[in-house]
């Protein structure tokens, strides 16, 4: 049932109009100029958070949009990456790079371990198992006070300076510096993700989403491909977790709770799971809406929930998906966006 081939939103939109040179340049320019446009430290750090959330949502989309595996436990990488970064930089060695590598590597290992069991299942069972795994990690983080600080969380996670020891170093304490640091890391990882998504490997994933039996029939090891996708998603999510950890300076087990996983799925769908940058767009939308509504009215859940319900009912392709579909219908007519790979 999941991802039937009759799906209205064709896979072609994965490499939809946003990935063309102009769109990406415009977005990058906007991202680079953002600190000057917003002029306020608060919005610079909100943009930083949006960048991190974008990476997280794009990493999840490797499973949902590309491989057709709906994970309900993606927060596990946000959390584990965050705790790995915090534990390493606080207790072992305060280095940004070491912390980020620890975050990515721990999540790669975790994803590999979880993936071995998860990818054998499909549909709701897959969703359930990812949910169960993430709740196990949540429970461990919640009760293992000696290491994780339990419900109180971990405090004072550093923002170690970067550079070459002895030669030069850049402090990341200022909001703007940190924003650019995150921008560079996130842009590089998203670019990497895009490369993977558009490699032959990425196309196999899409084929698995559309029709796993056929891929199996061709002789490709579906499980192994799914496992690779699972590990890639987890590792990218882990990097996002590491960045989040140093960004907030404070983490708690809430990061691992299932509602957090739900929020990441929400970002992905909100933006559009069938376009590469859609989830990033959704992340930005959700954080921006929440930030605005939360501070202007008491009943923000009703607004966010209402938007979500209307979106699901009337814009099932997500916001970016809708605009892209609209744009391609208008500009290409009957051609149905086939030019997008240029």
């Amino acid at each position: 049932m999941e991802g039937s081939s009759s799906n209205k939103f064709s896979i072609r939109r994965l490499t939809g109009s946003v990935t063309n040179r102009f769109g990406v340049t415009a977005l990058l320019a906007l991202a680079v100029l953002a600190p000057f446009l917003v002029q306020n430290d608060y919005y610079i750090q909100l943009c930083t958070e949006i960048l991190i959330a974008s990476l997280l949502a794009i990493s999840l989309n490797f499973l949902i949009g590309y491989t057709g595996l709906v994970s309900l436990g993606h927060a596990v990488y946000l959390g584990v990456g965050a705790y790995a970064f915090a534990l390493l930089t606080k207790n072992v060695y305060p280095s940004m790079w070491a912390g980020l590598i620890a975050a990515g590597a721990s999540c790669a290992l975790l994803a590999w371990f979880m993936g071995v069991f998860c990818v054998r299942l499909a549909g709701l069972y897959f969703a359930m198992l990812t949910l169960a795994f993430s709740q196990v990690v949540y429970t461990v983080a919640y009760y293992w006070r000696d290491v994780t600080g339990g419900d109180d969380g971990m405090l004072g996670i550093p923002k170690p300076e970067i550079g070459i020891p002895g030669a030069f170093s850049i402090s990341l304490e200022s909001f703007t510096n940190f924003y650019y640091f995150v921008l560079i890391i996130v842009a590089a990882l998203i670019f990497l993700a895009w490369k993977i998504a558009n490699s032959p490997f990425g196309r196999v994933l899409q084929a698995i989403r559309e029709n796993p039996e056929r891929v199996e029939f061709i002789g490709l090891p579906v499980h192994r491909y799914k496992l690779y996708a699972f590990i890639i998603a987890g590792t990218l999510g882990g990097f996002a977790g590491g960045l989040y950890s140093t960004f907030q300076g404070y983490i708690s087990p809430d990061l691992l709770y299932w509602t957090q996983s739900g929020e990441i799925v929400l970002m992905t769908i909100l933006g559009g799971m069938y376009s590469f940058l859609g989830p990033a767009f959704g992340a930005g939308m959700l954080l921006f809406i929440r930030d605005t509504v939360l501070n202007f009215m008491e009943y923000w859940r009703i607004v966010v929930g209402g938007i979500l319900v209307l979106l699901v009912l009337f814009l099932p392709g997500g916001i970016l998906g809708f605009f892209e579909g609209w744009a391609s219908r208008l500009s290409i007519g009957g051609n149905d966006g086939d030019d997008a790979r240029s």
Binding site: N7, V70, V265, L266, I269, W300, R301, V309, V312, L313
Partner: peptide, 19 residues
């Protein structure tokens, strides 16, 4: 449609009903 959408819709309702 894909089952994911029903999941999201019901998630939206949990938010709405809480408020």
């Amino acid at each position: 449609r894909e089952r994911l959408y029903t999941l999201l819709l019901t998630y939206g309702f949990t938010l709405i009903l809480d408020d």
